[in-house]
């Protein structure tokens, strides 16, 4: 596996990479087509062309003027922020504690968290929604509280991986120098572990942005972006819905590409390699 392999020996590799790239890019290409090709040439024709026959901003302008965009965007944004914040508020202490107790005990807790995570969303969401209705939480707060359930185990796992990578003596030295636990945490442990914490926050944020099941069951009206999009799709306003979908996809694609290098490097192995 030398880096300087010749073009010829890499040919099957490149063919495979190109085919897979096409398979994974094609759906996004379709979204762009529906958004930017004039509707009469496109999804109103029985067999829409694969190569764009025309170009227009009309669909986007139409979508922005006809559909309510700002409401779902702001709601989704606040919910995602709450979910990300809760992940850190609950995840950092939990990861700190798990790092301190033995690896074997910690792994038992991790397995428990991930088992809980397997609980089917829809099974849990219906009773939660019934109880939240009584508590007056059938709103964005309720959605955020429920979505936290989905992201917390992975957040703890990722932050724990970061803590495990720090030198053990770091905290002891700070304590010897007279710092108490909150100061050590705030001044040393959290800043030193910031990349794992950032990854946990962004992953929680993205998951919440995308989450549909809890959102549609707990707050079916005046809800987050995915629920609103679902409502538009069922009303069959496809080219407007596509403009809507594309607008929300672009920022997330950027986050995903930024996350890619972190995801590849540490997050999935960090907690495992002790």
């Amino acid at each position: 596996m030398s880096v300087n392999s010749s073009w010829k020996s890499n040919l099957p590799l490149y063919i495979g990479a190109i085919i897979l790239s096409i398979i994974f890019f094609y759906p996004l290409y379709v979204l762009i087509l529906i958004t930017f090709v004039p509707a009469p040439l496109n999804n109103l024709s029985p067999y829409p062309p694969q190569i764009p026959p025309g170009f227009t901003f009309y669909n986007i302008i139409q979508a922005y003027s006809a559909l309510d965009l700002t409401g779902p965007v702001t709601r989704s944004f606040y919910v995602a922020m709450m979910v990300g914040g809760l992940s850190l508020a609950l995840g950092i202490p939990a990861a700190y504690g798990l790092n301190k107790i033995g690896v074997r005990t910690a792994n038992k807790f991790i397995i428990f968290f991930f088992l809980i995570n397997m609980m089917p969303g829809i099974v849990v969401a219906i009773p939660i929604s019934v109880e939240f209705l009584k508590l007056g939480l059938s709103n964005m707060y309720g959605v955020a509280l429920a979505q936290e359930l989905v992201v917390l185990p992975l957040s703890i796992f990722i932050i724990l991986g970061g803590f495990r990578a720090l030198p053990r003596d770091l905290e002891n030295q700070a304590r010897v120098d007279g710092a108490n636990l909150p100061t050590t945490m705030y001044r040393i442990l959290i800043p030193m572990n910031r990349s794992a914490i950032l990854v946990a926050f962004l992953l929680s944020w993205m998951t919440s942005w995308d989450e549909f099941t809890y959102a549609v069951i707990i707050s079916p009206v005046k809800s987050t972006f995915p629920v609103q999009l679902y409502n538009y799709v069922t009303r069959a306003v496809s080219f407007e819905a596509s403009a809507f979908a594309l607008t929300f996809t672009i920022p997330v694609i950027i986050v995903a590409v930024v996350l890619q290098k972190y995801l590849k490097s540490q997050s999935f192995t960090g907690g495992l390699s002790s």
Partner: peptide, 23 residues
């Protein structure tokens, strides 16, 4: 290649479902 293949991970399930319902 890695970026291209990872992009769909960030795309909302509902958006992805919408795209495939159009396909």
């Amino acid at each position: 290649f890695s970026s291209l293949v990872i992009i769909p991970y960030g795309i909302s399930t509902v958006v992805s479902a919408f795209i495939f319902s159009q396909i």
